[in-house]
Simulated scan of single mutants.
Amino acid sequence: MKKQTTMKSDWIATAQTLNAALPYLQRYDGATVVIKLGGHAMGSDEGMASFARDVVFMQQTGVNPVIVHGGGPQINAMLDRLAIKSDFVRGKRVTDQATVEVVEMVLSGLINKKIVQAVNAAGGGVVRAVGLSGKDAELMVCEQTDPALGFVGTPVAYNPDFLRSLHASEIIPVIAPIGAGRAGETFNVNGDTAAGAIAASLRADRLLLLTDVAGVKDAGGDVVTEMTPEQIRLMIAEGTIAGGMIPKVETALEAIDGGVRAVVILDGRAPNACLLELYTDHGAGSLIRAPR
């Protein structure tokens, strides 16, 4: 009897959760959400499967998801295996010809197809994903960022209509941050930069930056749940935002300037992080948007 009572309580709680999510399901119906899946956030196979189910749920409830992924730890591991030495300039990897070939192999091959396979498995034949890089359909045309960095690119042109055509066919794009140069070069693009640029080209409703931290923290170490661009700039000037968080918030600011409605920095290792952010009152991580 006690077991039945507990089960009934669980069912009621589930129903209440679904009921509370209704306004958000309506809010995001037809919205474009770009998700940056960082290499550190990919975690275990179980974590990848959970992320894939979340993305399928989003697509099945009317969201148009676009996945852009990174893979820094995996690239480092492969370069070590191949005994290819990496140099860094001002914290950025110098990408020579040998390195860019490994970067493309790992990102467009190993990681991209792993994510595609996970989404297709979760989709059960109803939801489909397709793997791409910025080189496909001129999704991301780049110029060299800095000659000192070699084949590192800055996106300058895009093909958002191609991504919209995939959404019209109910296909989820999974994009590796590899760009094409106008002279036929292959460029390594920072994953956050690529996600922000693609989100801006689509005028996305949300850009979710999944990383390995809970969000932007204040001077006391607490996560700030909602911020404006002006607050971000002040926290950088004060030194509260520092280190690896600076490129992420800079990506957020550039995306918002480019037309993205809001950006959220959140811990991609947390179970159902994307669903918590989109479909609950409390959300997840740090939401950044211009004052309304």
Rank of each mutant, 00 (worst) to 15 (best):
G220C: 09
G181C: 01
P160T: 03
L139D: 00
N272V: 06
D161C: 00
I12P: 05
R269Y: 01
T251Y: 01
T211I: 07
K135T: 13
V224C: 12
G123K: 01
I288R: 03
L266M: 15
W11T: 13
R53V: 03
Q231V: 01
V56I: 06
R261P: 05
L139R: 05
D54P: 10
P155T: 09
V174E: 01
Q59H: 14
F57Y: 09
Q117C: 08
L275N: 06
G70Q: 00
G221P: 06
A237L: 04
M78I: 12
S50A: 15
G134W: 00
M1I: 11
P160E: 01
A21Q: 11
G184H: 02
G150Q: 03
G39R: 01
R164Y: 11
G70D: 05
D267T: 01
T32M: 08
K217C: 12
E101Q: 13
D281A: 15
L209A: 04
V263C: 10
S44I: 05
D146V: 08
V249Y: 00
A148N: 07
D136F: 06
G259R: 05
D222N: 15
K113G: 10
Y24R: 10
T99F: 00
V103R: 02
K114L: 08
I172M: 04
T240L: 06
V89T: 12
T17N: 10
P177L: 05
F151T: 00
M235G: 03
V56H: 02
G38A: 06
L202N: 03
E170H: 15
A21H: 10
I12D: 12
V213E: 11
T14G: 13
K3T: 14
F151H: 13
V68C: 00
G244S: 11
P177W: 02
P65N: 04
A284I: 13
A137F: 11
T6M: 14
A31E: 11
D281F: 12
